[in-house]
Design a binder for these strands. Structure first.
Length: 389
DNA sequence: TTGTTTGTTCTCTCTTGCAG
DNA sequence: CTGCAAGAGAGAACAAACAA
């Protein structure tokens, strides 16, 4: 079977080299479990939106870790070991980065099934399980290989490969987060740099979720500065500022409404392309309730509206329907408008709040574990305490 | 597009521990 | 001993992203 090469393959062979005296490539060719990991690490350097398939990695990881903790790679005797307890493995999986919501499936079923699919002729399966006692073992036959007369135990290397994979998956995200943190401080001294940073997020080719987070953060501050007066009678008016709410994670909310504004009840939809079909689909969903579109484009709102009208005409012919649709578009906010709004927000001195909001929303969006947030909060409290003393 | 893979939630059964 | 709650372990179903 030809071995697929991708960005992460080199990392794998480099790690194997360290454990085998530069025989990483040979190991990759001869070990099914390493080949399996190679197949499953394709997403290493893909965007945060791609699927990392941590479940199966972690199933291997927790068993290998248990194996190493028991010292079986050095002392042997694994065949006498009475196995790892499911609950311990399960708990450990969930402690690992991105693992907080993992289920039992990889350990019980899916890893072995998938392995079988990739290596139908291999006589071993990675996970051995005793359904009677509910104990689990890693299949030692797969992690000990013979190479030119030498016996090599891959357990430690496998652990390191999975750790490297996790690190690769985390880095793209943490860089963005770290940059956000940094920019909070930068903007106090140099608002110009902060403006550049935010403007950098308002590009047509920026990640859709980053764009959504950035536009939400800017719009939220923008509207927060606007007040309206309303009430049940002209004498009793309540003064309230406009509050923008995010209705969910981008991922979990595909095709839904992205932001809602209180108390005006405006709906905001963030879209990537000027695709009338998508607009009409969304408009259909809410019975032509007016929607404000935030579009990731530099085209002017007139151009966008003209396009929508044109496409609607092609689709419906009847002028009255087309007009109804166009009337349902409350406002179109494009990139230049977002930049303008941002500059107004900056002028009112709320730039830092925008960036803080971006950091906060990113955390939620990209699933940073609660523990990590606790650590950050703890560190912040610590540094704050130092400042005051 | 379509079917497949992977991540998540829901729900069911069986076991265990505990209070009364 | 009974009844209840919580935990373990499993499968079904669904949703989002990927591959072809």
């Amino acid at each position: 079977m030809p071995i697929p090469k991708h960005d992460f393959t080199n990392e794998i062979t480099t790690i194997l080299d360290c454990y085998s005296g530069n025989r990483g490539n040979e190991i990759l060719r001869s070990s099914e479990i390493i080949q399996y990991l190679n197949i499953k690490t394709k997403a290493a350097n893909r965007g945060s939106k791609s699927r990392a398939s941590f479940a199966n990695h972690y199933a291997i990881y927790v068993l290998v870790e248990d194996y190493l903790t028991g010292g079986f790679d050095r002392s042997g005797g694994y065949s006498d070991y009475d196995g790892a307890k499911f609950s311990d493995l399960f708990r450990r999986q969930r402690e690992l980065p991105f693992g907080s919501k993992l289920q039992n499936h990889a350990l019980n079923h899916r890893l072995n099934e998938e392995f079988k699919k990739y290596f139908p002729i291999c006589e071993h399966l990675p996970i051995i399980r005793d359904a009677e006692s509910n104990k689990y073992w890693i299949n030692e036959k797969l992690i000990i290989i013979q190479l030119g007369g030498n016996t090599i135990n891959l357990a430690a290397a496998i652990k390191e490969i999975i750790e490297a994979y996790v690190l690769a998956r985390q880095s793209a995200f943490s860089e963005f987060m770290a940059y956000c943190q940094e920019i909070i401080y930068i903007q106090e001294e140099s608002p110009e740099k902060a403006i550049q940073f935010i403007k950098g997020l308002f590009r047509p080719n920026v990640d859709a979720r980053v764009f959504e987070i950035a536009s939400f953060s800017v719009l939220k501050q923008y509207y927060a500065d606007q007040r309206i007066y309303w009430g049940w009678s002209p004498e009793e008016l309540i003064e309230e500022s406009l509050i923008l709410y995010k209705t969910g994670r981008t991922n979990a909310n595909d095709g839904g409404i992205d932001f809602v504004m209180k108390p005006l009840g405006r709906f905001f939809q963030v879209t990537e392309t000027v695709d009338a079909g998508k607009y009409f689909l969304d408009i259909d969903k809410v019975q032509r309730y007016p929607i404000t579109f935030v579009v990731k484009t530099n085209e002017s709102s007139e151009e966008i509206l003209a396009k929508i009208a044109h496409q609607a005409e092609a689709k419906y012919q009847i002028k009255a329907i087309v007009r109804k649709y166009i009337e349902s578009v409350e406002e179109v906010i494009n990139i230049p408008r977002l930049v303008e709004i941002f500059e107004e927000v900056l002028a009112s001195g709320y730039g830092a709040k925008v960036i803080e909001e971006i950091v906060l929303q990113s955390r939620v969006e990209f699933n940073v574990e609660a523990e990590e947030q606790d650590v950050l909060a703890f560190e912040k409290a610590e540094t704050d305490a130092k400042k005051t003393t």
